[in-house]
Amino acid sequence: MGKKTTTVIVAGVGGQGILLASNLLSEAAMEAGYDVKKSEIHGMSQRGGDVISTVRFGEKVYSPIVGLGEADVILAFEKLEAMRNLPYLKKEGMVIVNDYRIDPLPVASGYMEYPEGIIEFLKERVKTIALDARELAEKAGNIRTMNVVLLGVLSKNLDIPEEIWLQVIERRVPPKAIDANKVAFRLGREVAEKAFAGV
């Protein structure tokens, strides 16, 4: 990765634990010796709006955000949000998407339709890893580890050693939940390994 700055956009819906996930990523990158900047927009997030957090790391990072066609990875906690943020991705970038649906209000109150075939839409265009992170979180024994499952997938694609990730998780999650989060992280990494093995 060297001198280049890596940009990850973490996107989802208020209440999904996006800011915790982007905090863990920023800390792991800092511990790994990178310069890091993170930006987040959370004005209305408590009220179910979309949330975006951008994390950038490298030898020297200037801007905390990127414009169209500049991000290396989109880590989406909800699939409509993956689609919404696709214009920010580099053409050769990657999408990691939770195959999970939360109806926005215009859909819930019957004004608009939730788009069909989002995962296929993404796969036709870019390298995409789609997974059911909720199911894996349940398997890890705590539904709230969904964000760490997704970080696990992401971690396989970044130049940050696994031990650092585990240290940061241990430090940042409540003591009771450490074990479940570690399992969740490993389950996420396995998904990424399988994706690369072409299985």
Binding site: R47, L68, L80, R84, K91, V126
Partner: peptide, 27 residues
């Protein structure tokens, strides 16, 4: 953002994926 500055001052147009109109997610 850097992309806007690059486009405005250096004329470098960004290359990106277009998406169809999708439901917004108002708070």
């Amino acid at each position: 953002n850097p992309t806007i500055v690059r486009e405005a001052l250096l004329g470098q147009r960004p290359s990106y994926f277009e998406i169809p109109r999708i439901p917004h997610r108002p708070p």
